[in-house]
């Protein structure tokens, strides 16, 4: 075996080993490195109570209700499963917040399961299109 072949094998083995180790570490980080809990995660495993966390999903169609005071709103966050989270937020939401679109909310769960958010971020999906191509979806509807 020539010296350069030895070096090549050694380096490739080292790279594969380190890559494998890192990928294993990353996949076990799955939950901790997640930016938010999806509704399915919350119903399946439960979410930390009495601690500030983020939840994320799609704002359910026709679920946004504005309270009488004009700044408090209630809505449901769902995902591809049946799980939903009831969310209450007091404040101004980003422009892209709307029914059928992605949302990330930061706040705490109350004992009764209501999620009280103190920050709302709109999550943009991977679709990019001009208004005419979006057609009906421009106003309503899920993007999926």
């Amino acid at each position: 075996m020539k010296a350069k072949h030895q070096r090549l094998t050694l380096l490739l083995l080292a790279v594969v080993a380190v890559l494998g180790a890192v990928l294993l570490a990353m996949s076990s980080l799955k939950d901790q490195a997640a930016y938010f809990y999806a509704p399915a995660d919350v119903t399946r495993k439960g979410a930390p109570q009495a601690r500030t966390i983020r939840i994320g999903g799609m704002v359910e169609e026709r679920s946004v209700r504005h309270a009488g005071d004009g700044v408090t709103m209630d809505f449901l966050v769902g995902d591809e499963t049946d799980a939903v989270i009831r969310v209450r937020f007091k404040g101004i939401v980003p422009d892209l917040f709307k029914e059928g679109s992605g949302v990330v909310a930061q706040g705490r769960f109350q004992p009764d399961g209501l999620f009280v958010a103190d920050e709302i971020l709109a999550k943009h999906d991977e679709s990019y299109m001009p208004p005419e191509a979006a057609g009906e979806r421009h106003k309503t509807g899920s993007l999926k």
């Binding site: 990353m26 799955k30 999806a38 999906d125 679709s127 990019y128």
Partner: peptide
């Protein structure tokens, strides 16, 4: 891998179509 705020891939070079007009 992780739930992220950043959206997923829009452009696919290996077929499957792109979700960008």
């Amino acid at each position: 891998w992780w739930n992220s705020l950043h959206q997923g891939q829009s452009i696919s070079f290996s077929g499957g179509g792109s979700s960008i007009d």
